[in-house]
């Protein structure tokens, strides 16, 4: 695929993902503005089982809450689809459309119900209205299903080629060698600091219950935001810098070959930190150069680390020597 072609597809993906949420927001906003004069303030926004109002929100707040409720998931889903360069599955697109359709018609019928009643206390939500909203959601979902099925090119699932001849270095008889390097993750460090800050802000605001788990999570994420990666006669090891444990170790006997390759955490491993996806697991600290070990089980173990080519060459040499010694 050409560069402009890929770009056009990315924009198309973005538009398809955004469209239902934008449409739902537009309809809700248009109805709200058209009936603004007839709306009570505050509005009835929560209804008991029998359809009588039992919860109220000021008109201005309801407008913004309604828009946010529909826009935030839309923007998140669209950004994810764009950033991942991945085809959101047909089902995922349909669910996005369905949610937008349901929320849009539900919020709109609340506005219409309030406008019709004239006062919040008399506002009524008939049982058929949620049912109608569900129907609208289902119809929107069907549209999403059709759109996702047609316009989007199939994702090329070609497996990663085995790459050029695995790098190796020549180890003399009796020569011992080790490679070690530390790696730190800026995204994880920022996430840890953000957790600390969020926890610190929440504890005085809402009490210990909600804040303390965030506050406790911060140091944990910070502690695990870096690693020392070592290749030696034991195999491939990653541990928390300065501490012997926790650590991950792949023994030489389980390593078939190693290479270095560019790795994108979100796309290749589904995120940062210790990740596992089908056929691949590993530690992702940043995007870029990574040591990739193909295991005897056929799956891959990945660690993003600088100078991975040297590490791969040594790992290959050590694994070859180990396999020769054990006769494997």
């Amino acid at each position: 695929m050409t560069r402009t072609g890929a770009r056009a597809h990315a924009v198309r993906r973005l538009l398809i993902a955004l469209a239902p949420h934008a449409l739902a927001c537009a309809v809700f906003l248009a109805v709200f503005m058209a009936r603004r004069d007839q709306l009570p303030d505050p509005l009835a926004t929560h209804f008991a089982g029998a359809g009588h109002a039992d919860g109220f929100t000021t008109a201005g707040a309801f407008l913004y809450q309604g828009l946010a409720l529909m826009a935030v998931p839309g923007v998140l889903l669209a950004a994810l689809a764009y950033a991942l360069d991945a085809r959101p599955g047909r089902a995922a697109t349909a669910v996005g459309y369905g949610v937008a359709g349901f929320l849009g018609s539900m919020l709109t019928s609340v506005v219409l119900g309030n406008a019709h009643a004239g006062s919040a206390e008399r506002a009524h939500l008939a049982l058929w209205e949620p049912a109608a909203a569900l129907a609208v959601g289902a119809a929107a979902g069907a549209v999403g299903w059709l759109l996702a099925g047609r316009g989007l090119p199939p994702r090329d699932e070609a497996p990663v080629p085995p790459g050029p001849a695995a790098p190796s270095l020549t180890l003399g008889k009796g020569e011992s060698a080790a490679w070690t390097r530390s790696v730190a993750s800026r995204p994880l460090r920022i996430a840890g600091l953000a957790l600390l800050a969020a926890g610190g802000a929440l504890v005085p605001l809402v009490g210990w219950g909600a804040g303390v788990s965030l506050f406790a999570g911060g140091p944990l994420v910070l502690l695990l935001s870096g690693a020392r990666v070592t290749v030696d006669r034991h195999g491939l090891t990653a541990n928390v810098p300065g501490l012997p444990r926790p650590r991950l170790r792949i023994p030489l006997a389980r390593i078939e070959t190693a290479t270095s390759r560019h790795v994108d955490p979100l796309r290749d491993l589904g995120g940062w930190g210790y990740r596992a996806v089908p056929g691949r697991s590993g530690l992702a600290f940043r995007s870029g150069e990574a040591l990739v070990a193909r295991l005897t089980t056929g799956s891959e173990f990945v660690i993003t680390v600088d100078d991975a080519a040297t590490a791969a060459a040594l790992l290959n040499a050590l694994a070859d020597r180990d396999h020769a010694e054990t006769g494997a």
Binding site: G174, E175, S176, A177, A178, T310, L314
Partner: peptide, 9 residues
């Protein structure tokens, strides 16, 4: 950091 030790050196 690659460290190689050659006992023959």
């Amino acid at each position: 950091m690659l460290i190689r030790l050659d006992p023959a050196s």
